[in-house]
Amino acid sequence: MDRPLRRRLETRFANELTGPVRQRHDATEIRIGPAALTSVMATLHDEPDLDFALLADLAGVDTGDHMQVVYHLWSAKTPDWLRVIAEPLPRDDPRIPTLTGLWPGAEWMEREAYDMFGIVFEGNRDLRRIYMPPDYTSFPLRKDFFLPDDAARSPGGGVRHVERPEAPPAVAAGSLRRTPGA
């Protein structure tokens, strides 16, 4: 745990942070709103005392009631991983600015998140499906997409689960799992 990093982040992003900076094991976690993403990431990448040069991972998360996009960054200045969580994104129309301006390598990661969650990265030049066929309509990693053998949470027979339209008819609130963390 890198305490100075925490202090630096807290002072630098006092306006942008939507939650407290958390630290556990070797990861430091900040939460920001999707609108502030581009400026925060540019600061993290460009400022010499932060210098997060490498985007290690980009993950979409469906928490059941909203969407997140989670970024993991690496910097030579700190022994910690930096986890940036951009939330909340509405489930029916999740939109977030792209990072391909900073890291062109984020293009395929964003395509993957779009393919799996339907998160639209505004500004990405090539936001196509990457794994699923182009005529596919569902977003498989969303929490309302059930596997056929997921009997406990299946809303009933007669439905081809794997290729359901993305908005299921009626999902009982309890059938989605609890939102993790705070």
Binding site: R24, H25, A27, E29, A56, D57, A59, V61, D62, V70, H72, W81, R83, L141, R177, R178, T179, P180, G181
Partner: peptide, 29 residues
């Protein structure tokens, strides 16, 4: 419940896992 990120250096580069637990016996994400 919590989140963890682990990364290792493999023969091709960074192999990472971001796991979210919700307290059950299966990862949430």
């Amino acid at each position: 419940p919590g989140r963890a990120w682990a990364a290792i250096e493999g023969p091709r580069g960074l192999y990472g896992t971001y796991a979210i637990s919700d307290g059950t016996d299966q990862p949430f994400r």
